[in-house]
Design a protein around this nucleic acid. Structure first.
Lengths: 332, 332
DNA sequence: CTGTTAGCGCTTTCAA
DNA sequence: TTGAAAGCGCTAACAG
C-alpha cells in the first residue's frame, strides 16, 4: 500500500536519475540518452506517476485554464459562445473555468478578481455598464471582452449591433412596414446599440420607433409584454425584439391573442438561436454567429496569453436570416 | 514599482508578525490579539495582498473547484443541468471546470483523468457504455455520475427513464393511438431505458412499437428522419422521440410534408426543454427536471467531498407535461 | 547529456 | 497567543 501518490522524486529514484532530468524529460523540454529515457518511462508506468498540476502551476505561473464569464448560460446565444470557445480551448490543451454571471451579479468584481488568480486569461461578457468596469483593465491577466466598448482600452470581440439593427429596420421598411416597435431590454449592454442602428435607419425614412422595455431578455418577458404592444392604442405592424428569446415568447402570445404572424404583424429578433427556425412561422433574425464569436474570442485570448500582438477590436459581421415571421412582399 | 505580487511573507514583515500567524488569521483558523489582527488587516490592505490559490492548493490538496463533464452543452437539457449545478457550486464557494465531452469523445478517459487532478470532485455524464467506464471508479476523486448504472458502484443522480417512457406510452395509448413509433438514438445511454419503459407499457396492451434510430439526438436528425416514419408503408399515428430536440426537428418537417400535428399524428419528446412550449403546436414531453438534476448532483458531490455519507442512487421523478402536440381526446 | 541546488508561496506541526 | 522551521511537488538556473 502506498502512502500517497508518487512524486517526481519517486520516479527519479526508481529510474536512478535526478528529479531535474525527470522534470525536463516529462515536459519534453529536453531529450536524453535512450537508456535514461527508457528508465524514466518504465518508472513512470510502474509507479503510475502523474505530475501534480498545482505544484507545477505554482512555479510556472501558468494554469492552462481560461476563465469564461457569461451572463446567462441557459440562453442558447451564450451556450453557443461557450461551445465555440470551449472547442478552441480544448484543441489547444486548455480547460475552461465557467462563471455564470447570473448567480452573483452584485459581486461580479470579487468573483472575477478571485478567478483571475486561477487562470491564464479570461473572456468576459458582462451586463455591467462601462463606467463600472474600469477594474477589468487592471485585473492582471490577459482579458478579452465580449461586446463593444467606447472608452475602455480592453481587447474586444463583438458583433456589430448597430449594423444588425439597421439591417432589420431596413428589411422591415422595404417590406412596407411603417409602424415599427422595438421590444428592448435596457438591462442588457447591447440594447442601446441595437436601438441606435434601428433609429438611424428609421430616422432617415422619417419613421417613428415606439420603444418598450423588458425586465430581462427572456421567453417569459416576451410573452408578458406582448399584449401591451399588440393591443395598445397604436397598432404596430412590426416588432423588433432585443433577442430571439423575447421574440419567441412574443410570437407565442401573439398567437394566443388570436393574431397571425406575419399577416397581422411581422416579428424579428437578434442572435439566430437554433430554435427560431422551428417555430411557426420561423423567426427572421440577425445571426450574430455566436459559436464563431466564442471561438474567435478564445483564439484572440490565447494569442494574448502567448504574448502575441492582437488587434484591439475584432468585429464579427452580422447576417440577416430571412424566415417566415416577416412578410416577403409588400402588404396590400 | 513592485517586483511582483506581495506574498504572505511581505504581509508578515509589514505587520511585524510571523507568516504562520498571517496564514492562520487569513484562513480564519485561529484568532489573535486585536493588535495583531489589526496590523495584519492593515498590511493586507496596504499591500493589496491576495493569497495565491495554487500554492494553497498544493499544500491542502483542495482546489475549491468541481469538474463537470457533459456530452453537449448546446443541448438545453444540459445547459440547464449546468445552470443548476453551477448555482449550487457558486453558493458554496466552488468554481466549475467544464468539459464538453463532444470535443474529444475518443479520449474522454484521458481528459477526465487529467481533470481529476485539478478538482475536488467531478460530475460526469457520458455516452460511454457502462463496460467502458470501470476506470471512473478508480479516478481517485469523489465522482457523481449523471444517469443510471446497472453494475458500476458509482453514486448516481438520474431521472427515471423507464418510468418516463411508460408515462408517454400510456398517455398515447389512452388517447387512442395504436400505431406508435419510437424515434430513438442508440448512441445515447438512456435510449435503451426509455425504449424499455415504452415497450413494457405497449406489450401489456398488445401493441407493437416500430423503432427508428437517429445518428445523434439533434434537431437536424429529427428533420432528416421524419419522412421515413411519416411517409413509410406503415402509417404511424404517434411518434415518441428520444428527446425534445429530435421532436422539434421532426415536427417542423411534418409540417413541411403537409401533415398536421396532432390531427394526423401525435408527437412527444423527453426533457422538457424551454423551447418545446413555443412551437406550434407546443410539445407534449416528459419533464426530467434538468435544473433540479444538476443542482442535486452538485449537492450530492459536495457532500461526498466533505466526506459525508450519501445514498448511492438518487432518482428524480419525471413528470408528464401535456401540450398541444398530442390529441386531448380520442380520435374519431 | 545529467545533476546540484535553490527556492515558488503557503500551511502545519511543534515549541515557546 | 505567537513563531520557527520543515517541507508540499515541482521547475529553473547553473554547473559539470
Amino acid at each position: 500500500m502506498k502512502k500517497s501518490a508518487p512524486t517526481i522524486r519517486d520516479v527519479a529514484a526508481a529510474a536512478q536519475v535526478s528529479t531535474a532530468t525527470v522534470s525536463k524529460y516529462i515536459n519534453g523540454a529536453q531529450r536524453f540518452s535512450s537508456r535514461v529515457e527508457a528508465a524514466i518511462d518504465a518508472a513512470v508506468v510502474r509507479l503510475g506517476y502523474k505530475s501534480n498540476p498545482m505544484a507545477k502551476s505554482m512555479i510556472t505561473g501558468r494554469t492552462d485554464t481560461i476563465g469564461l464569464c457569461l451572463p446567462d448560460i441557459a440562453n442558447p446565444h451564450f451556450s453557443c459562445i461557450l461551445q465555440g470557445a470551449g472547442k478552441v480551448a480544448a484543441e489547444r490543451g486548455y480547460s475552461v473555468l465557467l462563471v455564470d454571471g447570473a448567480h452573483a451579479p452584485d459581486r461580479e468584481r470579487r468573483t472575477l478578481e478571485a478567478l483571475s488568480r486561477r487562470v491564464d486569461g479570461m473572456i468576459v461578457c458582462s451586463r455591467l455598464g462601462e463606467a463600472d468596469m474600469g477594474w477589468m483593465a487592471d485585473i492582471g491577466k490577459p482579458l478579452v471582452f465580449l461586446g463593444s466598448l467606447a472608452e475602455l482600452p480592453l481587447p474586444t470581440v463583438a458583433g456589430d449591433d448597430h449594423a444588425g439593427g439597421g439591417m432589420l429596420a431596413r428589411h422591415l421598411q422595404m417590406l412596407g412596414h411603417r409602424r415599427i416597435a422595438y421590444l428592448g431590454c435596457s438591462a442588457s449592454r447591447r440594447d442601446a446599440q441595437r436601438i441606435g442602428g434601428i433609429r438611424a435607419c428609421l430616422d432617415a425614412a422619417g419613421l417613428e420607433l415606439a420603444v418598450f422595455d423588458a425586465d430581462s431578455p427572456s421567453l417569459a418577458e416576451g410573452e408578458r409584454l406582448c399584449s401591451s404592444l399588440v393591443l395598445g392604442s397604436r397598432r404596430h405592424d412590426a416588432v423588433i425584439c432585443y433577442n430571439d428569446l423575447l421574440a419567441l415568447g412574443f410570437m407565442k402570445e401573439v398567437a394566443n391573442l388570436g393574431l397571425a404572424i406575419p399577416r397581422d404583424l411581422s416579428v424579428v429578433g437578434f442572435d439566430n438561436i437554433p430554435y427560431g427556425k422551428y417555430t411557426t412561422p420561423a423567426l427572421t433574425t440577425v445571426d450574430l454567429q455566436s459559436r464563431h464569436m466564442g471561438a474567435t474570442a478564445m483564439d484572440k485570448l490565447l494569442a494574448l496569453v502567448r504574448g502575441e500582438p492582437v488587434e484591439r477590436c475584432t468585429r464579427i459581421a452580422p447576417r440577416l436570416v430571412l424566415r417566415g415571421s416577416t412578410r416577403h412582399q409588400h402588404p396590400g
